[in-house]
């Protein structure tokens, strides 16, 4: 097996560019999902009547359907009733739909994990519901949520590979289209793997560190 290293070095800029696109899609999707999840958690916490049901339904649908079918529905399904969206719009809608659902679930279990006595003592002190949420519950819930939240960031970043299915030129799409253009299968697969390892290995180790640190604080081992 002879690696065409010349070919590989020539295409490094393309891969850097594609990796940049993957990361920015992931980053923007994470920010959008976080804002959705914050609003949703507030709705769940304050038990807003009708909206509460909507949030629950969204979370369940997002968590129980694959991203690929969400993408296909938006990208191939909607045009048949006259709604045409660009592939980038579709990607951000679908990823925010997915991420919003997952992040809300993370925040919800964080909120649940704060002991009842905290809320009771807050109310006994005469805090309003708003103050209780802002100064007592949220800071604690957020701390509890951090490891799971970080794991979900990585999850959403990895889901960006799936958007290659609607022709967004991120890392995987770039690789497969180069393979079919130049037949340099080994080289391209190698480059892609290196890119993903550079992005995700440090994140994965960081996640393990965060998990260990926060576990240390919660369980009394």
């Amino acid at each position: 097996m002879q690696l065409d290293t010349d070919f590989m070095t020539r295409h490094i800029p393309d891969f850097v560019h594609a990796a940049g696109l993957s990361l920015s899609i992931g980053g923007i999707a994470i920010l959008l999902s976080l804002s959705v999840a914050c609003i949703y958690s507030a709705i769940l916490f304050f038990q807003v009547p009708i909206l509460k049901g909507f949030v629950r339904a969204h979370v369940e649908v997002a968590r129980n359907t694959p991203l690929l079918i969400q993408l296909f529905f938006l990208y191939y399904g909607l045009p048949s009733i006259g709604i045409k969206l660009s592939s980038m719009t579709v990607v951000f809608i679908a990823m925010t739909f997915l991420g919003g659902g997952y992040f809300t679930e993370v925040f919800r279990s964080g909120l649940d994990a704060v002991t009842k006595t905290q809320a009771e003592s807050g109310l006994a002190l005469g805090l309003s519901r708003m103050q209780l949420f802002r100064y007592v519950i949220m800071p604690q819930a957020f701390r509890i949520s951090i490891p799971a939240l970080f794991a979900n960031f990585i999850f959403l970043l990895k889901e960006t590979t799936i958007v290659s299915a609607v022709a967004v030129p991120e890392l995987l799409y770039t690789t497969t289209s180069y393979i079919s253009l130049y037949y340099k299968t080994y080289e391209m697969l190698l480059m892609m793997t290196i890119c993903y390892l550079i992005i995700f290995l440090p994140l994965s180790f960081l996640l393990s560190c965060i998990e260990r640190r926060y576990q240390y604080g919660t369980h009394g081992h």
Partner: peptide, 12 residues
């Protein structure tokens, strides 16, 4: 398996 997305493994 945690670092490399599953779709990448499928293509691999």
């Amino acid at each position: 398996f945690r670092s490399i997305p599953i779709l990448v493994w499928l293509f691999f």
